[in-house]
C-alpha cells in the first residue's frame, strides 16, 4: 500500500469522517430494509384458522363397525383478505370407536403433510408419500413409518345426532402435537 493513503497515525478528523460516512450509509440502507422486515415477518404473528367446533356429519353417516369414513370440513376460510363462508377447509376421518364414541382424525399426515388414505382391505391408513401407516385408532402401525407421531386426533362432540369436530391443523414433523 501507498504510505500516503494509509498514514500510520490516523488523524482524528479523518476518523470522524469515516465514522460519519459509515453511519450515514448504514442508516440510509437500514431504513428501507427495516421497513420491509416488518412485512416479511408479519406471518409470524398470524394464527392458523380452526379450533372452533364445526358440524361435520350426521352420526348415522358413520359406519357402526369401526371403519373410518372421510368427510370434508366446511367452515369459513380466511385467506389473507378473503373470507369465504361454508367452503372446505380440510378433511377428517370419522369413525365410531367401541363404546359408541366418535373419533376424528385430521387427514393430514404428521410427517410432511400429505393426505393419508384409508385402505379398507389392510384396515389401516397409508400415507401415499413416504408410506407411513397408522392403525384405525390413528396410532403408528409400522414402526419404520417416517411419521413422528400418530394421526392427529381432533376433539369431537355429538349434538342432536350430528358430529361436531374442533378442526385444527398441527405442525408437521414434530413429535409433539402443536397447533400450526
Amino acid at each position: 500500500m501507498d504510505p500516503k493513503d494509509s498514514p500510520t497515525q490516523p488523524d482524528r478528523r479523518e476518523f470522524i469522517t469515516k465514522a460519519c460516512a459509515l453511519t450515514a450509509g448504514a442508516v440510509a440502507a437500514t431504513v428501507p430494509a427495516a421497513a420491509g422486515l416488518f412485512v416479511l415477518l408479519d406471518p409470524l404473528g398470524r394464527k392458523g384458522g380452526g379450533g372452533e367446533p364445526v358440524r361435520v356429519a350426521a352420526l348415522e353417516a358413520i359406519p357402526d363397525d369401526g371403519v373410518p369414513r372421510k368427510f370434508s370440513v366446511l367452515a369459513t376460510r380466511v385467506d389473507a383478505w378473503n373470507r369465504t363462508p361454508n367452503v372446505p377447509i380440510g378433511a377428517v376421518y370419522l369413525r365410531r370407536a367401541v363404546g359408541g364414541t366418535v373419533q376424528a382424525f385430521n387427514v393430514v399426515c404428521p410427517h410432511a403433510g400429505c393426505f393419508v388414505d384409508y385402505v379398507a382391505d389392510a384396515k389401516h391408513y397409508l400415507c401415499p408419500c413416504h408410506n407411513s401407516t397408522f392403525d384405525t385408532e390413528g396410532r403408528i402401525q409400522d414402526p419404520k413409518s417416517p411419521s413422528p407421531r400418530g394421526l392427529d386426533e381432533l376433539a369431537t362432540e355429538v349434538r342432536d345426532g350430528a358430529v361436531w369436530v374442533k378442526f385444527q391443523n398441527y405442525r408437521a414433523g414434530a413429535k409433539e402435537k402443536l397447533p400450526a
Binding site: L40, L41, P43, R46
Partner: peptide, 13 residues
C-alpha cells in the same frame, strides 16, 4: 416455514 408460506395456511400469501 411461516415466513415462506406467508402464515399458517397455504393461500394468497
Amino acid at each position: 416455514q411461516q415466513i415462506v408460506v406467508g402464515g399458517a395456511d397455504y393461500g394468497h400469501h
